[in-house]
Write a protein that binds this DNA or RNA. Structure first.
Lengths: 218, 218
DNA sequence: TATAAAAGTTAGATTAATCTAACTTTTATT
DNA sequence: AATAAAAGTTAGATTAATCTAACTTTTATA
């Protein structure tokens, strides 16, 4: 059985190599930066994970997850997202509060717990941030890929997911009454700085380019 | 913040010195036996816990929890019992399956989670084994103290708690359709071996002295 | 009360996870 | 292509948690 620490390395590797993070290859430094550790530390751990056949790489080369490693990482992600859903929907946490707690809960080892929790939540496909929850077989529901910034003028869309899960962003969304499922119409784009004017309910609001690049829509 | 390991030592000490375990003093060997560790290991840890002022003892003497140590142990117990209740009542675990999982969940650090869980469960006073759940202030609802074995012949009583939480015992109770709240009438006691004949619902059953010493009733 | 048994402690070793400092290899840039 | 920068590795140290083996103190008993 893997330690929490080992699980965290695999999860980080999954994240870094799944182009959520922008790129597809991961090196020692990327991992170290992502985990807040020193490259030397990561190097040591990678040796052990390679030994145990959870990762694959050659000296000075890029690191990839093996099938076994990816399966574990996906399962940890499944637990993380189920717990986030539980915290929001059942215990009324707000979506900016769930992450840290889910970071702990994702390491609880009990298949029965995971499956019962899934059932209790009625087998959700997406977590409170709109991220897909892997199924027990490792398959993932489709992830929204359209950025709000790429929606044409006068088009309407529905918020499907957030690309940025930082508290500041989530609280800002809260303040604007925007959440998963909110209908948005793009009214105007300012070419000067990429700002976008949106219709949200009866309100007309202006948001930055950075904002429009942080929301995924259907 | 304490490690899971440190929390487990404090919890064990609380258990051993709260006469649930029969006695009120705990030594290195008792702790080692209870935790499945070697006395030398426990000795080392006790030094650190003393350093941090969670326990108090003098060399070769008996160990007691300080106020701070007891507060932490009680809080861990609170979390353990709330999670057991959650697993049974919400996720339909049977009462012999919850312990191991609760052993993991009890270490999750989030006051908000604990309080929200308590609220969601409607502030239960007792867990699925009939053990009192400490309140946020550390106070405990009263614990049943009457053993089934001490109930007089022809008296009726209600099962309040189990003294033994081993799977074998809990599954046996399940098989006999006895749970917390079950009404029992003591029909006869066999002086030869301490066996007791009980009326449970419409059934008349005979149980051992050991059994009658493992159930607490009101 | 002397002494054997039980309880508790110390010393030294091991493993996991981390660090810093120094070194090597790869890559990117002039 | 030479060389500077970035990336990756190694060596040696530290801390937490565990062990075994040997030793000391307390307690129980003959």
């Amino acid at each position: 059985m893997l330690s929490n620490t080992e699980e965290n390395y695999l999860k980080a590797l999954l994240y870094l190599t799944t182009d959520e993070a922008g790129k597809k290859e991961a090196g020692t430094n990327d991992l170290a930066a992502h985990l807040g550790l020193k490259p030397a530390t990561v190097n040591d751990m990678l040796k052990r994970l390679k030994e145990k056949a959870y990762v694959s790489y050659k000296k000075y080369g890029k690191i990839t997850l093996t099938r076994a490693g990816r399966d574990i990482a996906v399962f940890v992600m499944r637990k993380h997202r189920l717990w986030e859903t539980f915290l929001c929907e059942v215990l009324a946490f707000s979506w900016d509060e769930v992450h840290e707690v889910a970071e702990q809960l994702e390491h609880i080892q009990s298949d029965k717990l995971t499956e019962r929790l899934d059932k209790f939540l009625n087998y959700p496909d997406y977590d409170p941030h709109g991220d897909p929850i892997p199924k027990p077989n490792g398959k993932m529901p489709p992830r929204a890929t359209t950025l709000l910034s790429s929606v044409a003028i006068q088009q309407s869309c529905t918020v499907a997911a957030v690309k940025d899960t930082s508290s500041v962003f989530l609280q800002y969304l809260e303040q604007l009454s925007i959440g998963i499922g909110t209908k948005i119409r793009v009214m105007e784009k300012i070419s000067f700085d990429g700002s976008v004017i949106l219709q949200v309910g009866k309100e007309k609001i202006t948001v930055s380019e950075k904002f429009a690049n942080s929301l995924l829509v259907d």
